[in-house]
């Protein structure tokens, strides 16, 4: 059953130097209970897409050009403010990249969590819970993400915690509203490698326990392979390939996805040298016509510079946007 359905979503950012066409016709469905990874290099629009689900991109400069994002059938892009407040945290919740920057440095953890709980109370027209109830609920949430001594943590400020603890706090906040969909935007990028593994394991455990639907955004295929059953690869604001993780890793069909995999080091075969994709990501203000990847593509033909390839199914769960795949 489809939980989230993004259809031909185009988003532009208007700036002094022109309009950047950051998302160019994203089409993506996520079924309830699915774990979807979104992979792509920096600047491909992954985070902007994630923030679109909660309408967090500041508008202006952001401007929706076309498309719909339906969550449980409702178009998020057309939601009135009251409905949007009920959506944020309570239906779709988000975990962010750098937990040091995404926690308020001047407020203690308890205040920040109580604010989240109270905000969700008022959005849902529920009676505002008392300070004691908010405190108890916050402590429970912190304990549920594996933080020891939650009572003491509530009095701490973010700078007194380690990076991993902060990320756990952010995850606890995201769980406060019992969301259906958890969007994790590069949740491990700012963390030490050992902590990364712990956070990924925690997210996987929470997804399993609570039956969450997960959308995990990362530039790291390894992170996604470890946590997601399905992957969508993005390039310059478009989804170029969408397949079960195992399929995508074994038989990537889009030249960009193939390039991504070739760029990974192979620990079992030290003789294999990682190969980069030649060229660099295009300007989104002035993107190449046709397929946005064609200037860097080894198999591009004249058609690629003119006609934008649509996503087409190669197998039942495997779609690719390439004329030649």
């Amino acid at each position: 059953m489809t939980l989230l359905s993004i259809d031909d979503y185009r988003l532009a950012f208007d700036g002094f130097e022109g309009t950047a066409h950051v998302l160019d016709g994203i089409t993506l469905d996520v079924a309830r209970g699915e774990t979807l990874g979104i992979v792509g290099e920096t600047g491909c629009g992954k985070s902007v897409l994630a923030r679109s689900l909660l309408r967090l991109n500041p508008a202006p400069p952001a401007r929706v050009v076309s498309g719909t994002i339906r969550f449980e059938g409702e178009n998020i892009l057309a939601m009135p403010d009251a409905a949007l407040r009920r959506l944020r945290g309570r239906r779709i919740a988000m975990v962010f990249q750098d937990p040091a920057a995404f926690l308020n440095p001047l407020l203690n953890i308890g205040t920040q969590m109580a604010d989240v709980l109270h905000g969700q109370d008022s959005a849902g027209d529920a009676p505002r819970r008392s300070a004691r109830e908010a405190h108890a609920r916050s402590a429970t949430l912190l304990a549920s993400v594996g933080l020891p001594e939650p009572e003491r943590l509530l009095d701490a400020r973010p700078h007194q915690l380690s990076g991993g603890m902060r990320q756990r706090v952010l995850i606890a906040m995201a769980l406060a509203g019992e969301p259906t969909l958890l969007v994790a935007d590069e949740p491990t990028t700012a963390l030490d490698v050992t902590v990364q593994a712990q956070i990924l394991a925690l997210i996987a455990a929470l997804v399993a326990q609570r039956g969450l639907t997960l959308m995990l955004i990362s530039h790291d295929l390894g992170v996604i392979a470890a946590s997601c059953a399905r992957v969508a690869a993005m390039y310059a604001g478009t989804v170029v390939e969408d397949a079960p993780t195992a399929t995508l890793l074994a038989t990537p069909r889009h030249p960009y996805t193939q390039g991504l995999l070739a760029a990974l080091p192979d620990l079992d075969n030290p003789a294999h040298r990682p190969r980069g994709i030649p060229g660099s990501i295009p300007s989104l203000r002035n993107p190449p016509p046709g397929c946005r990847f064609h200037p860097r593509c080894a198999i591009a033909t004249a058609r690629c510079g003119v006609e934008k390839p649509a996503l087409r199914a190669l197998a039942p769960a495997h779609t690719v946007a390439c004329h030649h795949a």
Partner: peptide, 9 residues
Amino acid sequence: TAARAHGVA
């Protein structure tokens, strides 16, 4: 941004 995403008033 995070506070908005979590639904803080």
